[in-house]
Nucleic acid binder design. Structure first.
Length: 518
RNA sequence: GGGUCGCUAGCUCAGCGGUAGAGCACUCGGCUUUUAACCGAUUGGUCCUGAGUUCGAAUCUCAGGCGACCCA
């Protein structure tokens, strides 16, 4: 099993004996490969160009034939071919008469090397570095995955993301796009005078969302703490403090299951704008997401899992009541009691969970069962029941509802926004109602945060607030079917494997490492 | 939480009750225009773990582990 590894260790020792350690200190590339490919696209087949180049990267493939060899070397920007001639190397590296043999026998696929040379486009049209010198930068002890099939094992792709990144250009592109999306979003907000302020991850009281927190403990203060489930309540305190436009883009933790749409830690951006309401936040959401999409994908029309999605504003707006009525025929404005609504739902074949104890909660149930999954194109769903939205302001004209929207794209909740509730008396009643639900057994219900209520009593301006799920947005922009495809290291159960590897342990006790042998 | 499927060589997979297999990779030999190079010869295994059925288990049964997908 460790025979491949032992072979490579032996090669590392040989390199050390030749005076070239298997782990170089540094190398100075003159170019990255994509820049070379672009700059010399005009070089005709079979021609050489006498420019001195030095490139560094990982050896991806090797083809050795007698006194000539072709390697593929890949740096972050992509691959370039190495054209390696025995005669050329012998002439250019007089200090090592066996340079060709050393290069072809001591360098394996997976090693990181640096080469110097000139350019040549082969007869078959492949731009190549005609190698006049080489050095080992890092000797790899483990082989690369199958060069043709790549890493087909999904579990291994997540567990050993470094291998996935080496062999899968698509995976590299996904994380490049994720970085682009996040920086485009920050730039857009910064340009509009939004200030990013970091708020605590460790909190003595979780709040701002209906979710179970992770629990931890501070030793010195002997204090139980939870990881934040939202940034909402602290960002609102900042608005009370006078910051009129604030946001935070960061990690949120929810102690929930894992699925293609859920990871226990995920990234959100919450944005608060004083003197604005939820209609302003709808406009902001459209503009922001369309901008990010344009920056990342070059268009606001994209394809997601074979479906065309058009993110060009304006987006469809519809109330939850209207959407439910369209899908089920049920008019929830007409029900005067929970039981009446429940009976009507059952007559239409909808499920009626016991926890849904009001007309409003049943409306949300009907929405989730019959509407949500079909909202493919971007849709703002407006005006939620007050029972499910304890931090949103009462609707200006519709009793029992709040000024809230959620944005759905490809059937997934992607953003959530309110005209924020700024009335401290109303807020206290709402949170106390939540606390009662919690006491009754709903462990996702919220609690009363006295300091937050005190902040509201100091006075919070009318404010629009918005939260966007970054991971789900990036899934959309990278055509990724699972949230794990857009999180570099998603949560997985630890693998029961080789806690003690006899050969590795014995080696570190008995043998000096190859680097120490030079 | 429930269901379905998967786990065999470093990688990708076949084998489905009767000697553990292929391609690639590795090692050795040959080869100056290859690009999944090619030709020849080797090497490589806790068939996820444990128990059971059987003369005999990678294969059948049960339990467990890890994962994927679907449902709640």
């Amino acid at each position: 099993m460790s025979e491949l590894r032992e072979t490579r260790l032996e090669k590392a020792r040989t390199l050390a004996a030749l005076g070239q350690g298997p782990y170089a200190l540094r190398f100075e590339p003159t170019h990255r490969t994509a820049a070379l490919q672009q700059a010399h696209a005009d070089l005709p087949n079979g021609q050489e160009r006498d420019v001195a180049v030095a490139v560094a990267g990982r050896v991806m493939t090797r083809r050795v034939m007698g006194k000539l060899a072709f390697f593929t070397l890949a740096d972050e920007t992509g691959p370039i071919q190495l054209f390696i001639e025995k005669a050329t190397l012998a002439a250019s590296m007089p200090e090592d008469p066996d340079a060709f043999a050393h290069l072809t026998s001591l360098v394996d696929a997976g090693d990181l090397i640096g080469v110097r040379g000139t350019l040549r486009r082969t007869d078959r049209g492949e731009l190549s570095v005609k190698v006049t010198g080489w050095s080992m930068l890092t000797k790899a002890l483990q082989p690369l995955p199958d060069k043709w099939h790549g890493l087909a094992d999904v579990e291994k792709r997540y567990r050993q993301r470094y291998l996935d990144l080496i062999v899968s250009p698509d995976t590299r592109e996904t994380f490049r796009r994720r970085a682009l999306a996040v920086s485009a979003m920050r730039r857009w907000l910064d340009e509009r005078d939004f200030l990013e302020i970091e708020t605590p991850v460790l909190q003595s009281q979780p709040g701002g969302a209906d979710a179970r927190p992770f629990e931890t403990h501070h030793n010195a203060l002997d204090l139980p703490l939870t990881l934040r489930i939202a940034t909402e309540l602290h960002l609102k305190r900042l608005v009370v403090g006078g910051f009129e436009r604030v946001y935070e883009l960061g990690r949120i933790f929810r102690n929930e299951g894992v699925s293609t749409r859920h990871n226990p830690e995920f990234t959100s951006v919450e944005i608060y704008q004083a003197y604005a309401d939820y209609t302003d936040m709808m406009a902001l959401t459209e503009q922001l997401i369309a901008h990010v999409c344009q920056q990342v994908c070059g268009s606001t029309r994209i394809s997601y899992q074979g479906t065309e999605i058009d993110l060009t504003p304006p987006w469809r707006r519809a109330t939850m009541h209207a959407l439910v009525q369209d899908a089920t025929g049920l008019d929830f404005t007409g029900f005067s009691s929970r039981d009446e609504a429940a009976a009507a739902m059952q007559a239409k074949g909808l499920e009626v969970p016991a926890l849904a104890d009001s007309v409003g909660r049943l409306l949300v149930e009907a929405f989730e069962q019959r509407v949500e999954a079909d909202l493919i194109q971007p849709t703002f769903v407006l005006d939620y029941p007050v029972e499910n939205s304890p931090l949103a302001r009462a609707h200006r004209s519709k009793p029992g509802l709040v000024e809230r929207f959620e944005l759905f794209i490809v059937g997934r909740e992607t953003a959530n926004a309110f005209s924020e509730l700024i009335d401290p008396v109303d807020q206290r009643q709402r949170l106390e109602a939540q606390q009662e639900r919690k006491a009754a057994g709903d462990d996702e219900a919220q609690t009363v945060d006295e300091d937050f209520l005190h902040a509201l009593e100091v006075g919070m301006p009318p404010t629009g607030g918005l939260g966007i799920g970054i991971d789900r947005l990036v899934m959309l922009l990278t055509d990724s079917p699972s949230i794990r495809d857009v999180i570099a290291f998603p949560l997985l159960r630890p693998e029961a494997r080789m806690e003690s590897r006899p050969e590795a342990a014995a080696e570190s006790r008995q043998e000096p490492r190859p680097a120490a042998m030079g």
